[in-house]
Nucleic acid binder design. Structure first.
Ligand code: FES
Ligand code: FES
Lengths: 134, 134
DNA sequence: GTTAGAATATGATAAAAATCAGATTTAGGA
DNA sequence: TCCTAAATCTGATTTTTATCATATTCTAAC
């Protein structure tokens, strides 16, 4: 998340960044970040270019992607959507004992991840409404 | 959580259960469950008695404890309360870029954990309003 | 074309979390 | 009193996740 937001803020088709210019800014080891970015790139969540003048960047299309893509690629689609008590399906029809604790909080969060694009967040950061501690 | 709820449902001062009678029901390895229960017992979230006729159980007092105790003991107090982007303090004064995504969802969840007792959940299970898949 | 700079791929290592194993303490009952 | 059944304690092992290291492929520029 940090890396993608950082890239969203500082890169585009004409301004790429290498992992070695990013990892220090977000306090993540270089190799680990490389693997994460490669994974995101492979799934077309972010873009990359090899060779000199290459690097990672977010295309205009990338920036319009919903945030949920990032967590789905990195953590898997089940990470946020599974029942707290491991019931097969989490729905309000047959709620587990903990279901109401979360209430619509979790689905609210997921829906926000689905409906908010990377670009949306960057707008707020640029407007100073939110802060990116990088 | 599963184990505590299971114990809440099936034990009291006069009806204790041993880990070997619990672990199979909640699909958790015996030794791991033992360690978790011991930790909870050490912090007085659940009760235990050694020797023959002993076992783990939830006293009336235990059952009135808020659920947050369980997660604080097992996962640490920071697990649910830290900023998604690792800002020192997560508050709406200086929100990070992801803060509004969670909105009040997270605090809603935490407050529920703080205001709901183990006993409260058991009531719903007994009433058939929720299900404990055990 | 050749070179050098970048991501990519692959496997190894380290750290953290989960799991296992066994010795130790406590307590009930014969 | 002594035996046995349970939790407790301690440390080791396994599994997962994070991190490292290195070889490979692509590509822009000369
Ligand atoms: S059914 Fe368990 S969290 Fe929804
Ligand atoms: S400030 Fe980051 S989640 Fe609240």
């Amino acid at each position: 998340m940090k890396a993608v937001l950082f890239l969203a803020l500082h890169t585009d088709e004409d301004h790429k960044m290498m992992v070695k210019d990013v990892y220090g800014r977000i306090n993540v080891p270089q190799s680990y970040l490389a693997k994460l970015l490669q994974e995101l790139s492979k799934h077309n969540v972010i873009s990359s270019a090899r060779g000199p003048k290459g690097g990672f960047y977010l295309s205009a299309i990338n920036k319009e992607l919903p945030l949920i893509k990032i967590v789905d690629v990195i953590d898997g689609e089940q990470r946020l959507r599974s029942c707290l008590l491991s019931i097969k399906e989490c729905d309000s029809e047959n709620p587990c004992a903990l279901h109401h604790l979360v209430g619509n909080a979790n689905s609210y969060f997921i829906e926000n991840l689905e409906n908010t694009s990377i670009a949306d967040l960057i707008v707020d950061v640029r407007d100073g409404k939110t802060v990116l501690p990088l």
